[in-house]
Amino acid sequence: MSIKTPTQYSSYHTKVARSRAISEPVWVRWLLVALMLAFLTLFLIVPLVAVFTEALRKGFDTYITALIDPDALSSIKLTLIAAAIAVPLNLVFGVAAAWAIAKFEFRGKSILITLIDLPFAVSPVIAGLIYVLIFGLQGWVGSLLIDNDIKVIFAIPGIVLATVFVTFPFVARELIPLMQAQGKDEEEAGLVLGASGWQILWRITLPNVKWGLLYGVILTNARAMGEFGAVSVVSGHIRGMTNTVPLHVEILYNEYNYAAAFAVASLLAILALVTLVLKSLVEWQSARIAGEQEQALS
């Protein structure tokens, strides 16, 4: 269950003007564009704008106060910690998985690819639940943890685990098709020229997939910082302790403190917008490189 990667799709290649025989009448075109814009406005633009207007409804001072509230700051810190652990872990996994899957043939490969996709198919709530079943009080290792005074559930480790789970496939899903498409000629050339495995990885493979890698990291990061359902199950909602930013938004909202809730939410909305901009830049960049190579070849 993947989103198309920048290499698989780019909506920016040059288009040949379509001949009249195969384009629609002007009024049809206008109608379709208007319908699409109406749909996207209703579902995307209006809610996005609403976040910011609701956040600023009570004025700029209230907005700032909500952001520098200690509980808000600690939730930001926790979210950053969770992302800072989950992103590198899944990055290393993504590179390892893509290396094995794209560069080698082995039995059970397609099953492995499907298994890597599993977390996309699992409801975030269930993602949280399974960790409670293992690390919770009555869980498999629950008593072991209590004896050693280690807290996983309703504590930071649980939040990190849940975040790792929901962002698990992103980097791997970006890298696998990219590295498959690039083949292994360059790696073999490096080998013949005397490079070691790590030298091949660092000097040849990773530079070749850097845009796909970055794309995967951007998606992983966005999801890691924004995850709600899974984290909500394992966090225990302890203010100032185990609240991530999305959970803090929920608490404020449920306390009818709408202005503060939307103020904190606006941070996440800004993060989303930055993500979209970065993502588009990466897409354009890789489309540009692909275009150049295509041109050079022709």
Binding site: L40, P47, L48, V51, G229, V249, Y253, A265, L276, K279
Partner: peptide, 18 residues
């Protein structure tokens, strides 16, 4: 075109309250 991916990027809780 870029905005179409907003639901991927926007945390679900934010989408929910908005």
């Amino acid at each position: 075109d870029a905005l179409v991916d907003l639901p991927f990027a926007l945390p679900t809780a934010v989408a929910g309250i908005a």
